[in-house]
């Protein structure tokens, strides 16, 4: 049971990172990124392939973050001139292309065979039998750092500008600030987080193949953001840890419910996510969390 709990928590921590990245891009920035899983997959492959080539895991992770950030920024450059619905299509297409390339360019990615024997960071640090809990600690630490960083960004003048571009890009331009510039940076920072999450995925499973990456990753992230409240990092974190925990945790039902297989369960999970989102959008369209502010005038005026 403990092993099971640790496994679920690790998966949830990684999913929470994806949710936080989406909250920056879509929640705060208004940029629909349906291609999350593609960037995540890229991060996993960069980290995984470099590690099996002998690169130290932390270096591989850093390269994954920088690489995905750069590619995200480029994809933002191409697509942010488009309106919101087109951006959704472009990012989705982009992710599918990435998946195809990774699936079929076997000389580089080992194709459908997958990459095996990926080494985890600090794996010799933990005593025997504590490898998974050690890795969970690393994943939770990553969540903590990312959360703190994003919370800092959200409260900063930069975060304010990002929310302004979401509310009305035309106004931001009339104020002399380049919307494109803001969006590229938002995509880059989000991409770095997705690269981190993907890298952790590769390390955790120590084996990756293209079938592990699909739109369910994107669906979980959107669910976390919608339920948590667009723009609210805290809300996203809480909803990721409760909802995704419950959904992922439902795996153990396979052992108890007769006639329930892993594939049925996967389908049921997707169904629950869909129904849950619809219900939520009807009854609480803004989600539960609240967006942080850069400035509280009430605080400053009391010192007058």
């Amino acid at each position: 049971m403990t092993a099971y709990l640790i496994a679920t928590l690790t998966v949830v921590a990684i999913a929470a990172l994806v949710g936080l990245a989406l909250n920056l891009q879509w929640g705060m920035g208004g940029l629909v990124n349906f291609g999350l899983f593609g960037f995540y997959m890229l991060g996993a492959y960069i980290a995984g392939l470099l590690t099996v080539q002998g690169a130290p895991p932390l270096v591989a992770l850093a390269v994954a973050m920088i690489g995905v950030a750069a590619l995200s920024a480029v994809s933002a450059l191409i697509s942010v001139r488009l309106s919101e619905d087109y951006l959704a299509i472009v990012t989705l297409g982009f992710a599918e292309c990435l998946r195809l390339v990774i699936s079929y360019e076997g000389w580089l990615t080992r194709g459908m065979l997958g990459v095996t024997g990926i080494e985890r960071p600090f794996q010799n640090l933990w005593p025997r039998g504590f490898a998974d809990i050690g890795f969970l600690a690393i994943a939770l630490f990553a969540v903590l750092i990312v959360y703190a960083t994003l919370q800092g960004l959200a409260r900063s003048p930069f975060g304010r500008l990002v929310r302004a571009t979401r509310d009305d890009p035309g106004v931001v331009e009339a104020l002399g600030k380049s919307v494109l510039n803001v969006r590229v940076r938002v995509f880059a920072v989000g991409g770095a987080i997705l690269g981190l999450a993907g890298g952790l995925h590769a390390f955790y499973y120590t084996y990756i193949d293209p079938t592990q990456f699909g739109p369910i990753i994107t669906a979980y992230a959107f669910m976390a953001v919608v339920v948590g409240g667009r723009g609210s990092n805290r809300g996203v974190l809480v909803s990721a840890f409760t909802l995704i925990f419950l959904l992922e945790g439902s795996r153990f039902l396979v052992d108890y419910v007769h006639g329930l297989g892993a594939s049925e369960l996967a389908a049921i999970r997707l169904f629950i996510v869909g129904v849950g989102l619809v219900v939520l959008l009807i009854f609480k369209p803004d989600g539960f969390g609240r967006e942080p502010r850069s400035t509280l005038a009430a605080k400053s005026s009391s010192s007058l």
């Binding site: 304010r160 929310r163 302004a164 979401r166 509310d167 009305d168 723009g231 502010r293 400035t295 005038a297």
Partner: peptide, 8 residues
């Protein structure tokens, strides 16, 4: 900018 506060 509707979701930003007045001072923001």
């Amino acid at each position: 900018l509707a979701s930003l506060s007045v001072v923001e």
